[in-house]
C-alpha cells in the first residue's frame, strides 16, 4: 500500500524517472510522461514514449523489474517505488488525458521554480505505451540524512 502522502505527491505534477536494467545488468534510465496511482493503491501506471524509451521497454518486456522515482520541484519531496510490470498496453484516450493533465501540472511546478513555460511546453508529451506496475516497495527519498528509508510495505 502506498501511503497517503505519497499518493498525493504522485498526483501533483512530479518529475517521473524510470530505472530498468537488461540481462547484463546494464541500467537504463528514461523519463515518463505521467504517473497515476490506481484505487487499490498498490498499482501505478506510468506513460512512456517509444521514441526515446525503446531500451526501457525492451528491459520491461524481458524481465519486468523497475524502479520509479518522482520528485516535486517546488519542495523536493521525493519517493522511489520499486515493482514489477503487470501489463504493457497502448495508450488510449484516458491515458492521453492523464498525460495532458500531468504535463500542465508539471509545467506549473517548473514555472514556480523559474523555468520558462516555453521550455516545458516544448516537450513532445505524446506517450505511446502505458505500463501497469505492481508496487512492491516504497522509499522516502527526499534529500537529507533520512533519504532512502523504506516507508512501505
Amino acid at each position: 500500500m502506498i501511503p497517503d502522502w505519497i499518493v498525493t505527491l504522485l498526483h501533483t505534477g512530479v518529475s517521473v524517472m524510470v530505472g530498468t536494467r537488461d540481462e547484463s545488468l546494464m541500467p537504463e534510465c528514461t523519463r515518463a510522461w505521467g504517473i497515476h496511482v490506481a484505487a487499490d493503491r498498490g498499482t501505478i501506471t506510468i506513460l512512456l514514449a517509444e521514441t526515446f524509451a525503446g531500451k526501457t521497454l525492451d528491459n520491461l518486456r524481458a524481465n519486468g523489474m523497475l524502479a520509479v522515482t518522482c520528485t516535486r520541484p517546488t519542495d523536493h519531496l521525493t519517493c522511489q517505488l520499486k515493482g514489477r510490470v503487470r501489463n504493457i498496453k497502448p495508450v488510449m484516450s484516458a491515458e492521453r488525458e492523464l498525460s495532458r493533465r500531468w504535463h500542465r501540472d508539471f509545467s506549473a511546478e517548473l514555472g514556480a521554480c523559474g523555468v520558462s513555460s516555453t521550455l516545458s511546453e516544448g516537450w513532445i508529451v505524446e506517450p505511446t505505451v502505458a505500463i501497469d506496475i505492481t508496487v512492491t516497495e516504497v522509499f522516502d527519498q527526499t534529500p537529507g540524512p533520512g533519504a532512502g528509508s523504506k516507508v512501505s510495505p
Binding site: 518529475s15 524517472m17 524510470v18 530498468t20 541500467p27 537504463e28 523519463r31
Partner: peptide, 21 residues
Amino acid sequence: MVPAALSTCASDGTPNITFIS
C-alpha cells in the same frame, strides 16, 4: 541547474533510481 537522474542495479538484478543535484 536542473536535477539529473541516476539509475543503477544491485547484483541481484534489482534496479534503483535516484535524483542527483
